[in-house]
Nucleic acid binder design. Structure first.
Length: 686
DNA sequence: GGGTCGGCACCTA
DNA sequence: TTCCATAGGTGCCGACCC
């Protein structure tokens, strides 16, 4: 789209949106108008700018490949030709025409279900989704250029009378189940690729019932209609790839049969635009067209030597086999899940408390989903989309398999922290590398994070005085001894139980988030926890740290609803820290006592001189928090120096952490950090 | 130096 | 004012191990 060589008076023509691609029901669409509207509505937005960046990147890639092409000698081309010819022969020999596959695709499924349940929508342009995104549009709407995966506000512009219906997956699942019952009658092992699509191997049923594939397809479609009241389209072909292509040809409510005959297949495929092939999307189409002038499958075969010269072996093999009309003919017996993820899009924000709240929610959802399927995962990937639509992912592979929301959140938090500060519009978590062993039924006693979010309050009673605070840096274990018991192995992250008890109350606030996060910190932060717990338990210390003026003093941050993390009665952790590297609580607290902080004449900070009148309650509180954080960091830093050798083993425990640190942006040095987000800064060395 | 694994961006449906 | 959610897969690069 950055290419405007075809005239600056019509810049939309170079906007390579997918919305103008041929799709069923869009034949009569004024493509230029759609392109112009999409361009006008998108222009100048952050999304648009990101698309421009992506486009520029692809353009550069194309230029590089063109340059690579030019450098090819006659000899190179001849060699690649031989490689490609040999491979083509191998593929041809392996061609299997013995199977008959049927691909069923429900017509505008979500929209059709909605119309079925609300007949008043019939005949009117309608889309399922909202202003931000459309899932499906009915055929009336498609005539205006409205289609799936288009933002609703653009669809509105294209078709002002468009009716929006919110998505209701419960409904769609119900109807999908009905269709699947029908599929089962034709193929017990049918492959459901989505709620509205399925592949059926009808080879046997055709033989058993002495019916042609065309008759079976028609009968099946009739059954579907009788069972659901919905129409579908079908494609019949010798393999899955072709069946999928065929089901699109007679849409809606039609079918197309490609005979199991080599000549018929090659004739059919040769003129087919490459974009019709499943697996060739916008980018690949663009590259193949602009680098090699390939538009059809036939051209893919003709340029096969160049494909092998420019692309990887597996990509070239795929292009070649698609060009020959080859595809899978067998269904995998067992399809194991490779990953599971959950993500949320929201209004862009850099409010770290909000971002962590999202993370808690996502971790909980992912954990719940994993538990439903009995999955343990070892690799956690954090996905982020910045306010400028840049997508990043950060992954972490662990030594052990995890599934609980606490464990997921713990690692996810660390990944997220390394990226902040950042304005985000999406956070996602993906778990992969699943264990073969199954997770037992969820412990009913284990409270979930969501419960925590909903019911609020950390309510672990103080179990002991500060005498229970001990460190163990020799074996990298950090135990938080609470009522329930919470064991964290700093290296392997083994959580024995949630460690929380729950009470009805307020939603999770940043304070509690801090606590959650903090509960899992490594040893360097244990010093802080220890310190805080000590402060909580020692009113005497508090009174010494606090200024005579209660407004803006440290005690403020310990009040419910404030920024502090510990409430004297309701929550305190006693960190059991074993071994010979004992944290000296006395030293820690005494240093705080030494750092006298108060408001001189009730308005001037005794430490930095900043002037804040009494009425600036929140500002003063934040300011005092900042100094408090500084003090703790100072203590931590001193502790770090003392224990640097022990720490090194901990740092090495997180694979990839070192590498990531190199990329990490500089910390917010000198910038004010509220105490509830203090860990963002303080925890850079785990 | 080759194989393997982890991390990450990207592509596709 | 506003551009999704989820899963599978690939390519490339760097680290690590033998």
């Amino acid at each position: 789209m950055s290419d405007t060589t075809d005239g600056s008076d019509r810049p939309w023509q170079s906007y390579h949106t997918v919305y103008t691609n041929a799709k069923a029901g869009m034949d009569g669409v004024d493509k230029e108008k759609v392109q112009r509207v999409v361009y006008e509505m998108s222009k100048g937005s952050k999304y648009f700018e990101n698309e421009e960046r992506k486009e520029a990147f692809i353009k550069q890639k194309i230029e590089n490949m063109c340059a690579q092409c030019v450098k090819l000698t006659e000899m190179d081309i001849s060699n690649y030709q031989m490689v490609a010819d040999k491979r083509m022969l191998e593929l041809e020999v392996a061609r299997d025409l013995s199977k008959t596959w049927l691909h069923v695709d429900m017509d505008a499924f979500y929209a059709a279900v909605e119309t079925l349940e609300n007949p008043s929508l019939k005949g009117k342009p309608m889309a399922v989704g909202g202003m931000s995104m459309i899932s499906t549009a009915n055929y009336e709407a498609r005539r205006y250029g409205v289609r799936a995966a288009m933002p609703g506000f653009i669809a509105c512009k294209l078709c002002p009378e468009l009716i929006f219906v919110p998505t209701d997956f419960k409904k769609y699942t119900h109807y999908s189940d009905l269709t699947r019952k029908v599929f089962q009658k034709y193929d017990q092992n049918f492959i459901a690729s989505s709620l509205d699509e399925a592949y059926l191997d009808i080879t046997e049923v055709c033989k058993e019932r002495c019916m042609s594939s065309e008759e079976i397809a028609r009968e099946l479609r009739t059954h579907i209609y009788e069972e659901t009241g919905l129409t579908c389209s079908a494609g019949v072909a010798p393999n899955l790839l072709l069946a999928k292509v065929c089901s699109d040809i007679k849409k809606p409510n039609g079918q197309f049969v490609l005979p199991n005959d080599r000549k018929a297949v090659t004739t059919f495929i040769s003129s087919l635009p490459i974009r019709k092939i499943g697996g060739i999307g916008k980018v690949t189409e663009h590259i193949l067209r602009d680098v090699l002038g390939i538009n059809t499958c036939e051209e893919m075969l003709q340029k096969r030597a160049f494909l092998y010269a420019l692309f990887s072996r597996s990509s070239s093999d795929f292009f070649l086999s698609a060009g020959l009309g080859l595809g899978k003919t067998d269904a995998p017996h067992v399809r194991l899940r490779k990953s599971m993820s959950s993500e949320r899009t929201f209004s862009a924000t850099e409010d770290e408390a909000k971002l962590y709240n999202k993370l808690v929610d996502i971790a909980e959802t992912l954990s719940t989903d994993m538990q439903k399927e009995g999955l343990y995962g070892r690799t956690l990937t954090l996905k982020l989309k910045t306010a400028s639509f840049e997508v990043r992912s950060r992954a972490l592979s662990l030594q052990k398999y995890i599934y609980s929301s606490e464990e997921i959140l713990y690692h996810a938090t660390k990944l997220l922290k390394a990226e902040l500060p950042l304005s985000l519009r999406l956070i996602g978590l993906r778990m992969s590398h699943f264990s073969d062993c199954e997770v037992g039924p969820a412990d009913p006693l284990q409270k979930t994070l969501k419960n925590f979010v909903i019911t609020g309050g950390v309510s672990t009673k103080a179990t002991s005085s500060n005498s229970s605070l001990r460190t163990d840096m020799s074996d990298d274990h950090l135990m938080f001894d609470t009522e329930v018991g919470h064991c964290i192995d700093a290296q392997k992250t083994c959580i024995s139980d949630s460690g929380y008890t729950y009470e009805s109350g307020n939603p999770l606030n940043s304070n509690q988030l801090y606590h959650l996060e903090h509960d899992h910190q490594n040893l360097s932060n244990a010093a802080i926890d220890v310190e805080r717990t000590h402060i909580t338990l020692s009113n005497e210390s508090l009174s010494k740290v606090a200024s005579p003026n209660s407004t803006g003093c440290v005690t403020q941050s310990h009040e419910a609803g404030g920024l502090g993390m510990v409430e004297t009665e309701s929550c305190s952790f006693s960190a059991k820290i074993k071994g010979d590297n004992r944290l000296d609580n006395q030293a820690v607290s005494s240093s705080i006592q030494e750092e006298r902080f108060f408001w001189v004449d009730d308005y001037k900070c005794s430490l930095c001189g900043v002037e804040l009148p009494q009425s600036f309650v929140e500002e003063r509180q934040e300011h005092s928090d900042y100094h408090f954080a500084e003090m703790l960091q100072k203590e931590e830093s001193e502790q770090n120096t003392r224990n640097i050798s022990q720490r090194s083993s901990q740092k090495a425990s997180i694979s990839g952490e070192t590498k990531r640190k190199k990329r990490k942006t500089s910390p917010k040095d000198g910038k004010y950090i509220p105490i509830d987000l203090f860990f963002v800064k303080s925890n850079q060395n785990f």
